[in-house]
Design a protein around this nucleic acid. Structure first.
Lengths: 149, 149
DNA sequence: ACTATATAGTTCGATATCGAACCAAGGAGG
DNA sequence: CCTCCTTGGTTCGATATCGAACTATATAGT
C-alpha cells in the first residue's frame, strides 16, 4: 500500500523507537532518583556541573530543549531546595546567572552514583561499544531536528 | 576525574541524546498535527491501524509504554472526537475493546500525510540508510530497558 | 534622543503524564 | 460456594510541560 510507505520510513521508525525509549528511561530514572527530584531537574544540575555554572536560564533552556517558561519553573524548584541560586546578571539587568551551590554539587554527585548503580545493573546486557557508535549519529539527528524547529 | 567517568558512559550519553531528540521531535509533531491532537493520540491511532484494532486499553498502554491511567485519558479524548469506540470485551466483562471508526482511519491517513510532508522537508539532510541501521540497535536497547523496568 | 523592535524572564491556563487508591470482575484453593 | 489474590479500568491529586500574553530591559534605526 503506497499510503503507508510514506510513514514507514527509517526516520519515522527511529523517532518512534526514540520516543518509547525516552519514556522508559525517564520513568526508570525517576524511580531511582531521590524523592521529588525529576529527571529534568537532575539534567540541569548535571549540565551546570559539566559545562560550568553562571549560565543564563535561557541558555540552559536551549541546551535542554525546553520552553523558557518550563525553565523558570524548574529553576524555581531547584532554588527552593537550595541546590542553585539565581543571581542578577552583571551585564544585563533583564537576565540572571544560575549558580550551583555546594549542596547542589553534592546532590548531583550523589544522584550520579545512584544512577550509575541503577544502570550498571543492566548495562552488561548491552554492547557498550555499539552504543558508543550510536552517539554521533544521534547527535547529528538532533542537530537536524534542532535546525528545523 | 574519576567521579565523572561513571556517568560519561556511552549508555548515559545515548539516553541523554535520546531524551532531547524525543522532546524535539515531539514538539515538532505537535506543531504540525491538527489542532488539539497530541502526538500520543496519533501514536495510538497509528498503532491500531498498523497492528489491528480490537486491542484492549491495557495492551495499547503496554505497546506505547504509558501508564494505564494515561491510556484511559487518551482514549477518552479520541472517543470524544469520534475517532475510536470502546466496546465491551466479549470474553471479559472488566475489559474493553478499542475499535477504530471510519473517521479515525481517515484522520490517521490525513495526519500521516501531514507528518510525511513535514518530515520530507529535512529528511534529505539525513542519510536514510544510516538511520535504517539505527533501528535494530534502538529496538534492542528498548527491550533491555523494558525488561528492567 | 526617540521610537520601534527584539530579547530575558515571569505568569497563566490548558493538557499529558504519573502513581496510588479504588472498584469491579476473574480465577484459584479450600 | 466462599474467601483470597490478581487483573482491567477508572479516578484523583500532583507535577512537568507547553504556548501565549505580559513586563522590563536592551538594541537599532532614524
Amino acid at each position: 500500500m503506497k499510503r503507508n510507505a510514506s510513514i514507514d520510513t527509517p526516520l519515522f521508525q527511529v523517532l518512534t523507537e526514540i520516543g518509547i525509549i525516552a519514556q522508559l528511561s525517564g520513568a526508570l530514572f525517576n524511580k531511582v532518583l531521590p524523592e521529588g527530584l525529576h529527571v529534568s531537574h537532575f539534567a540541569i544540575l548535571n549540565h551546570l556541573a559539566r559545562i560550568g555554572d553562571g549560565q543564563t536560564p535561557l541558555q540552559i533552556a536551549g541546551a535542554m530543549q525546553v520552553a523558557k517558561g518550563t525553565m523558570t519553573h524548574s529553576l524555581g524548584v531547584l532554588e527552593r531546595r537550595g541546590l542553585v541560586v539565581l543571581e542578577p546578571h552583571p551585564d544585563d539587568r533583564r537576565s540572571k546567572r544560575v549558580m550551583l551551590t555546594d549542596a547542589g554539587r553534592a546532590f548531583r554527585i550523589a544522584a550520579v552514583d545512584i544512577l550509575a548503580q541503577a544502570m550498571g545493573g543492566f548495562s552488561s546486557e548491552i554492547d557498550e561499544a555499539d552504543l558508543g557508535l550510536l552517539v554521533p549519529k544521534l547527535a547529528e539527528l538532533r542537530k537536524v531536528l534542532d535546525a528545523n524547529r
